[in-house]
Write a protein that binds this DNA or RNA. Structure first.
Length: 284
DNA sequence: AGACGTACCTGACCGC
DNA sequence: TGCGGTCAGGTACGTC
């Protein structure tokens, strides 16, 4: 098995984490971890004490996700929580020498190696009891899972009610909707034809319904794209080329808007010191 | 409470 | 070729 990235080229948001979860589960679910090597423990937070000793020898039983968090369940009712931050990747390969920024390396039976690689070290790894997942400080305050069965315009309206900040800033708040980052927040607002400058409270009723549907559609499409390249990857055993698909507005300042209207141009603006890309004519 | 600014971190990119 | 400056953004935290 040649080393290759099971990671992302841009920032990992919900769809990327879901694709990684799926890819890892296929290879690692039910496998015993034989060895853990911590090369750098000073991530966004320090690795838990004796992390390697506690994970070594355990079977990884289930691979789950909440928002942008990976939850890797162990046989002894513990959970390894992984957040990829800005630049984190999970690479899956054989046991060649670790490369730069491979901070934690897991060797599984069968000669499979999982590496947590994160140049900026904005990511983190934690370990705790499985029955504490919903009470974990990083998980507890998260907003609704946008692909969950209860996420719709009604619930979005109630979350946004009374909020005066811009809808764009609010979509980045993980307590409002869990799992969106800058890219899919922009893409969702474009698909919903909602202006990023609107106040949260003004997104209600039909408009909130449109936005909720758009968020789900954008995330589903991205996961589907990730899944299809995952199949290519499994067949080809090469490097993953996914998440290269074109975004409709993100990073496209000055481009023609996808609506096709000749006078519609994508613009960039800065909100909460983050870039927003949108079509001022389509999005109201 | 919520809105905002800043820090964390490093690779990529640009201009000189 | 190299060097310094700037930008990118998820999240935590401090401040008003």
């Amino acid at each position: 098995m040649s080393a290759r990235f099971l990671g992302v080229l841009n920032v990992p948001e919900l769809p990327e984490v879901e694709t990684i979860r799926n890819g890892l589960a296929k290879v690692l679910e039910g496998r015993r971890c034989k060895e853990v090597l911590v090369r750098r423990g000073d991530l966004r937070r320090p690795l838990p004490n004796k992390f390697a000793e506690k994970v070594k020898g355990r079977v990884f039983t289930r691979f789950c996700r909440r928002a942008k968090y990976l939850l890797l369940h162990l046989e002894d009712n513990k959970v390894v929580l992984v957040h990829l931050g800005m630049s984190g990747r999970m690479t899956l390969g054989g046991q060649s020498n670790p490369i730069q920024h491979d901070h934690v390396v897991f060797d599984f039976e069968g000669g499979v190696r999982l590496s947590f690689n994160d140049p900026r070290r904005f990511g983190l790894i934690d370990l705790f009891e499985a029955n504490q997942v919903s009470r974990h400080p990083l998980i507890e305050a998260l907003g609704p899972e946008p692909l969950g069965p209860n996420f719709d315009g009604r619930i979005l309206t109630s979350i946004l009610s009374g909020r005066r900040a811009s809808i764009k800033a609010l979509l980045l708040d993980q307590k409002v909707v869990a799992g969106l980052g800058n890219i899919y927040a922009c893409e969702s607002l474009f698909l919903a034809r909602v202006s990023p400058r609107r106040s949260g409270a003004s997104v209600a009723g039909v408009r909130a319904e449109r936005l909720a549907l758009a968020i789900r559609e954008v995330l589903r499409a991205a996961i589907a794209a990730g899944g299809s390249s995952l199949r290519d990857y499994v067949q080809a055993h090469g490097e993953l080329g996914y998440f290269q698909h074109k975004f409709k507005v993100y990073g496209r300042n000055g481009d023609a808007c996808a609506s096709g209207a000749s006078d519609h141009v994508i613009r960039r603006l800065v909100q909460s010191s983050r870039s927003t890309f949108y079509c001022p004519r389509c999005q109201r």
